[in-house]
């Protein structure tokens, strides 16, 4: 059993980490906004942690704070995420549908090129030798686990209060929501910023987890992968991102014995999910439950 965790500890934590990225896309989706900006904030959050963890300027801070340097990195990433999220969110969220998605893709590209040109970010090689919080990869669950629980709690609670209802109102019909007195822009920006902040903190936790950080973490490909977690998992369920990430992250590893052909099977599974479960895994599960209930209830 210990061998299992030694071998798959990294994978288990990666699932939670990627689920957090999925959730960061789920937040704006709650208000009906398709944003791919999360990965840009994830990348920036990672750079904040990587720079604070390795740059000589912060050496006295690290010496003084010890382990508490890590929470401080998260805090800095959080502040950056919120401030930049608001700055990007207000103009970007004036756009709708595909144009918002395009603007956020552009944001990801801008971040990518910007960090490649900042000497402090280490260029294409990136930053390496980031101080470790734990020896074992599995122990990083103490970083990502509580954050995931917190994020899930926020999503769960938010759907029960007025703010969440306002999000859903905007998602279902922005014009009608506006006519009913819902402040649509404020709600869209709030949902967007929540996602940005979550992505930034996840990034700050990921830099020590991965040992290294570089511009390849924040590419367009990565943002599409995160979107896939939500779509495969189910975009209308808060458990969707977790199940989507669990499937997409673990599948290539579970299929590892198949060697080269594993990517083929990986693709087949994804296509099958898209074709047969258009509402995602959670949507499929819900449909199954209704059918079972209908079967048991007879004519009811």
């Amino acid at each position: 059993m210990s061998g299992f965790f030694e071998n798959y500890g990294f994978l288990i934590v990666t699932i939670v980490q990627q689920a957090l990225l999925g959730l960061s896309i789920y937040f704006p989706l709650m208000a009906g906004q398709l944003s791919l900006a999360s990965i840009g904030f994830y990348s920036l959050g990672g750079y904040v942690a990587a720079i604070m963890g390795t740059h000589p300027y912060f050496a006295p801070w690290r010496a003084a704070l010890g382990f508490f340097m890590f929470p401080l990195e998260w805090l800095f990433a959080l502040i950056l995420g919120v401030v930049l999220g608001i700055a990007v969110g207000y103009p970007a969220l004036r756009l709708r549908g595909i144009y918002l998605a395009l603007a956020t893709i552009a944001f990801v590209q801008v971040v990518n090129v910007a960090v490649l040109n900042m000497p402090v970010a280490g260029g294409a090689v990136g930053i390496f030798g980031i101080p470790q919080a734990f020896e074992s990869r599995l122990d990083y669950i103490w970083f990502f686990g509580p954050l995931f629980a917190l994020a899930m709690f926020v999503v769960y609670r938010i759907t029960a209060i007025g703010r969440g209802l306002a999000f859903f109102a905007v998602r279902e019909d922005e014009l009608a929501a506006g006519a009913m007195g819902v402040r649509t822009t404020a709600n869209k920006v709030t949902a967007f910023v929540l996602g940005c902040a979550l992505a930034a903190v996840t990034g700050a936790m990921s830099a020590p987890f991965l040992n290294t950080w570089n511009a390849r973490q924040g590419t367009f490909d990565a943002s599409v992968t995160c979107l896939a977690y939500v779509l495969i998992g189910g975009s209308r369920s808060l458990w969707g991102p977790l199940f989507g990430a669990a499937l997409l992250v673990s599948l290539p590893e579970v299929l590892r014995p198949l060697k080269d052909s594993r990517m083929i099977l990986n693709g087949v599974v994804l296509v099958a999910v898209c074709v047969y479960l258009p509402q995602g895994l959670m949507g499929g599960l819900a449909a199954l439950r209704t059918r079972l209930a209908a079967g048991r209830g007879g004519v009811a």
Partner: peptide, 11 residues
């Protein structure tokens, strides 16, 4: 990617 390299090394 980086995660893939870590998984391969662990195995």
């Amino acid at each position: 990617d980086e995660a893939g390299a870590v998984n391969a090394f662990q195995n």
